[in-house]
Design a protein around this nucleic acid. Structure first.
Lengths: 206, 206
DNA sequence: TTCCGACATGTACCAAAGGGCAATAGTGAG
DNA sequence: CTCACTATTGCCCTTTGGTACATGTCGGAA
């Protein structure tokens, strides 16, 4: 699949062509969305013609279609990066980044990952740590009290499996799965599998 | 280059082998570091034998050699993820993640990117940007097709509420809640409330 | 050997979830 | 005004989920 760049510029950067000789230019987001595209596709978005709000709207619209958006900025900044990423962008880099870096970004993002300048990620993480360090996170107490089998069942529930599927996966009867679940609910003081699924994924429950 | 897993376990997860049939096992970090390795190499680190500090020291030691560390945790948590990433890890995922996800992580990281569960990145960005504050629910793909009421029901399910509770919260009958749920499942192609709960929280479903 | 915990299952039973059918109502576009 | 969509709810039925009570195996600790 050809790399797609959404940019109004008739004369796109030479670096882009160096990175992706077969790239395709689309002038607007609207044109891109009316064109053939599928969930999981990736696209580059040149945000230079937009202000911050317009850019974020564009990303949201693309992300809604499950398009992986890689943002190209001519004036990258930390604040801008956070804005773009929080709107759903998966990549953020300088529009004039070296071709090899552009290729890196594309590879990482198309593999399901994210890409941002390393320094940014570092700052992001340390910021989050500062913010997070105060309030103690509700840690799933007692998870280690589960037996191996119960642990396996819990993980399956955390992925959305129903009893029949778990039984098949673990090669036991549905009755056995139920027994493990009852034991898990008891040990972790949970009400039902929905709460378990959330807990397994470290999410707050009601 | 063969994928390297640093783990003391003599019987590593079958999923790892499914993802990387030619993987290599190294029992300790020390053994890895005395072995041939080059800057830019990647390695998987099973942190189950370590406590938090030991794990971070190990990552720092590896990162100092410019090794790209991908952390495998059997009990992933937000706090742990931040700790590992801030120590220099480039990837962080569940040790029992599906093989396809492990491959994704490897591809993203070896391309110079980072990989962490989408929900984490989202929260990370939110935290940094200080938009966080409580229920930061911007909704994933497909949710725009939901009506306002369906949206409310979906959010409640995402917090682990059962039908009775949702009915009380929204001041309608349980039957109405069920009707909304049926409509939601239909629109989003979901099977049951567990899958909905996961989707609302941007987690992968089965 | 005996006792215990983890694991596995069966029969029942009750509760919750999910859905088909149908009716009533409000709202906004054409 | 009519049509489409949404919201709400009742009746009723099926499928799942979750528990209670019991039985049986197996391996390790006392």
């Amino acid at each position: 699949m050809k790399p797609v760049f959404i940019t109004p510029s008739a004369q796109p950067s030479a670096r882009w062509y160096q990175a992706f000789p077969d790239l395709q230019i689309i002038p607007t987001v609207k044109a891109y969305l009316t064109r053939v595209h599928r969930p999981g596709d990736g696209c580059w978005l040149d945000i230079s013609p937009f202000d911050n709000d317009q850019a974020q709207s564009a990303i949201v619209a693309l992300a809604a279609e499950d398009i992986r958006v890689m943002v190209l900025s001519y004036l990258p900044s930390e604040a801008e990066a956070y804005g773009m990423l929080s709107s759903g962008a998966r990549g953020y880099c300088h529009a004039q980044a070296p071709p090899s870096q552009l290729q890196e970004v594309a590879t990482a993002v198309m593999a399901g990952g994210y890409w941002m300048p390393p320094i940014l990620l570092q700052r992001l993480v340390s910021a989050a740590i500062r913010i997070d360090s105060g309030p103690p996170i509700a840690i799933p107490q007692g998870f280690e009290s589960l037996t191996e089998r119960e642990h396996q069942v819990a993980l399956e529930v955390g992925r959305g499996a129903n009893n029949r599927e778990i039984a098949t996966t673990l090669a036991v009867s549905e009755r056995t799965v139920k027994a493990h679940l009852t034991s898990i609910f008891d040990k972790l003081s949970l009400r039902d599998r929905v709460q378990l699924a959330l807990l397994v994924n470290r999410l707050p429950v009601h």
